[in-house]
């Protein structure tokens, strides 16, 4: 096989998988242009009578709060979460992966342990903490955990990546008289960029889509992020506007998509290309 043929085969295979993969996304886009009442139970990809009314209703906002307010809240939460999570998880990850100190094994086990308990039983005790601290209806309960590396998933992810970095780096740096801060900042962090980018992407998306946290901790409609606003189109005791909800949820996807597009290319430049310049 020539490289050219191989390349064609590659593209055909990738596109074939993509068609299957993106069909549901296409259906959702179709649904957003379908009259609201016809959406559930509709089986076709393309709406019989396309309408923009769903988007018009979504754009109206909810109860006098404009749609931009929901976007703004979501962006603020997501961006601050990314900053907090990357900073705190990178620090914790570095400590677990590269440093030796008393209690490390125990603390690492505790961290993994926090992954194992279903979060539903933590909801009430955590709510009590923030309620007593008078932090309800602020963003603090949604953000403070991100700055304190409470998401073991990310710490562990960074640990696993940092452990793949050659030990000799530390030794070389030590011989150069490098302190831990400089070693961390100048050598380990740049080399861990794929991991940090991964953490940023996930944090952004997961925060963006988080529903339960904002539901419990935010009260005022002006503070709602998008997922809470979306849910407002639905009520099982009266009527539900699925069209407006789907339309708004697709609009809500645009910033995440942009974020992913902007950041995914940094995934490419790992150790292999940006290299051991240290």
């Amino acid at each position: 096989m020539t490289t050219r043929v191989r390349s064609v085969v590659w593209h055909v295979a990738a596109l074939a998988i993509l068609v299957v993969l993106l069909y549901p996304v296409a259906w959702t886009i179709g649904a957003s242009f379908t009259p609201s009442r016809d959406i559930v139970g509709n089986l076709e990809l393309f709406p019989a009578t396309p309408t923009g009314a769903n988007y018009a209703r979504a754009a109206e906002g909810i109860a006098g709060v404009s749609i931009w307010s929901f976007f703004r809240n979501s962006v603020v939460l997501a961006v601050l979460s990314v900053i907090g999570t990357v900073a705190s998880s990178a620090m914790a990850g570095y400590a677990f992966a590269r440093l030796r100190f008393r209690g490390r094994g125990l603390m690492f086990t505790m961290m993994i342990g926090t992954l194992l308990l279903p979060f539903h039983v933590m909801i009430i005790p955590q709510y009590i903490i923030f309620q007593r601290a008078g932090l309800i209806d602020t963003f603090v309960p949604l953000l403070i955990g991100k700055f304190l590396a409470t998401e073991a998933f990310f710490v562990f992810l960074i640990v696993q990546f940092m452990r793949t970095l050659p030990r000799e780096l530390d030794e070389a740096a030590t011989i150069d008289g490098c302190g831990h801060l400089r070693l961390f900042w100048n050598i380990i962090l740049p080399l861990s960029r794929p991991a940090l980018i991964t953490v940023s992407i996930f944090t952004f998306i997961w925060t963006w889509n988080d529903f339960l946290g904002p539901l419990l901790y935010l009260n005022s409609p002006e503070n709602y992020p998008l997922p809470i606003a979306l849910q407002a189109f639905i009520d099982q005791t009266t009527t539900s506007d699925y069209g407006a909800m789907i339309a708004m949820s697709l609009l809500a996807l645009i910033p995440v998509l942009l974020f992913f597009l902007a950041f995914q290319r940094y995934l490419v430049e790992g150790v292999a290309t940006s290299g051991m310049k240290g």
Binding site: A95, M110, T150
Partner: peptide, 23 residues
Amino acid sequence: LRTDGPAGYFFLSPWILGMLLLT
């Protein structure tokens, strides 16, 4: 195990705080 002690606790301090405060 003792060698990186202070540095270890320094880098881990946000995590330790989060563990004690929130988890």
